[in-house]
Computed example of a mutant assay.
Amino acid sequence: MVTEQDALLPESGSQNSRYAELIEPIARWSRGFSDYETAIPGLGLFRREGPAPPAFCMIEPSIVVVVQGAKRMWIDEAAYRYDVSRFLITSLDLPGRSEVIEASVEQPCLGLVLRLDRFLLAELIAQGVAPLSRERGSVPSVGLGAATPALLAPLARLVALLDEQAAIPILAPLILREIHYRLLQSDQANRLRQIAAVDGHGYRIARAIDWLKTHYASPMRIEELASQAQMSTPTFHQYFRQLTTMSPLQYQKRLRLDESRRLMLNEHLDAASAAFRVGYESPSQFSREYSRLFGAPPKRDITNLRRTSARPS
Rank of each mutant, 00 (worst) to 15 (best):
V2H: 12
E11A: 13
S12F: 02
S12R: 10
N16K: 15
R18Y: 09
E21R: 15
L22C: 09
L22Q: 09
I23N: 12
E24I: 08
P25C: 03
A27F: 09
G32M: 05
S34C: 06
S34M: 08
S34E: 10
Y36K: 10
E37G: 10
T38C: 03
A39E: 14
L43C: 02
G44N: 10
R48L: 04
A52F: 08
P61L: 00
G69W: 10
A70W: 10
K71N: 11
I75D: 04
D83Y: 13
L88K: 11
S98H: 14
Q107K: 15
P108I: 02
C109G: 06
L110V: 04
L121S: 07
A126S: 15
S133W: 07
S133Q: 08
G137S: 03
P140G: 01
G143A: 03
L144N: 05
A147E: 01
A156Y: 03
A166G: 08
A166I: 01
L176A: 01
E178R: 14
Q185L: 12
Q185S: 04
D187G: 11
A189G: 05
N190V: 06
N190L: 09
L192T: 04
R193V: 03
Q194L: 06
I195W: 05
A197H: 12
I209E: 02
L212M: 15
T214R: 15
R221V: 12
E223S: 15
A226F: 12
S227E: 13
P234D: 09
Y239C: 01
Y239N: 07
T245P: 00
S247L: 05
S247V: 00
P248H: 07
L249T: 12
L249R: 13
K253D: 04
S260C: 06
R261K: 14
R262F: 07
N266G: 04
H268F: 10
L269M: 13
A271P: 04
A272T: 14
F276I: 10
R277C: 03
R277F: 10
V278L: 01
V278K: 07
Y280C: 00
E281P: 00
Q285C: 00
R292P: 00
F294A: 02
K299P: 00
D301A: 11
R306Q: 14
R307A: 09
S309I: 05
